[in-house]
Nucleic acid binder design. Structure first.
Lengths: 129, 129
DNA sequence: CCGGGAAATGAAAATGGTTGTCAAAATCGC
DNA sequence: GCGATTTTGACAACCATTTTCATTTCCCGG
């Protein structure tokens, strides 16, 4: 078994936003952990493979990971500024995806939905223009 | 003469699915076009920048492009097997995204939605299994 | 405790898509 | 025709990710 994998998982849990493999690696080294980049990548992939963490691609095409509160299917509302992430459920969206797929004769329909915005803490305080 | 950018755009229009920059480059060379990889990338970026083509990332993290019928905001229903793509509108999803964002105090909400599935032509004809 | 082997680890090289560099060619204006 | 500007394209540079391969660790049996 890999205690390294747990270490990676634990590091991810300390962050509330999505982190890249490189980020996780850098952070672990900062905390004094002895671990290689390769192992971080492998741990992250294994974790994602087991549904322990969620993965998505940022605008740069990098894979970013996050230890989510639930293994259930859900989506994310991510702040563009601070990376703060909220897990959201969207039954309507699930239904919509299924419906759209069915209308066009598609089966085994899956979907990716991510919502980005600026959270209240990061919103520019309007009033002074 | 028309610029290489038009040639790239035209090549993209011949395909009904999303194509990577490398794909477009390879195809153009096959048709005898004299063009460099760099130019294809630049043309694609410029086209995407002007809203002439849509861009998204495939599972490998590559950027893939498609010349869409409309410049309006829309989503895609893509076949995993043949790449056949259907443009779909989802007013409900737009609303949902806005609502979810608002509920959590997020502003300037945007979203990415892609639906994948197997189209009727590619569905395995069950019966003898 | 000791030895063998499979799995895990990690440093470095390889891979591959994408971007940057820079000189040559095409284009435009005069 | 000439020079300035833009476009082009071969190639190097980048950088995240993967692969390679030797070493280390851990488990199991003796």
């Amino acid at each position: 078994m890999s205690s390294r994998r747990d270490a990676v998982h634990d590091t991810l849990r300390q962050s509330e936003g999505f982190r890249s493999a490189q980020d996780v690696y850098a952070e672990m080294r900062q905390t004094g952990a002895k671990i290689g980049l390769t192992t971080v990548y492998r741990a992250l992939q294994a974790l994602a493979d087991h549904g322990k963490v969620d993965v998505l691609r940022n605008d740069d095409g990098e894979s970013v990971y996050r230890a989510c509160a639930t293994g259930e299917h859900h989506h994310h509302l991510v702040c563009r500024r601070c990376g703060h992430t909220v897990e959201v459920a969207g039954p309507d969206v699930e239904r919509w995806a299924e419906t759209v797929g069915a209308e066009h004769g598609f089966t085994e329909v899956t979907h990716t939905v991510e919502v980005f915005g600026t959270c209240s803490s990061c919103s520019t305080p309007v009033g002074a223009g």
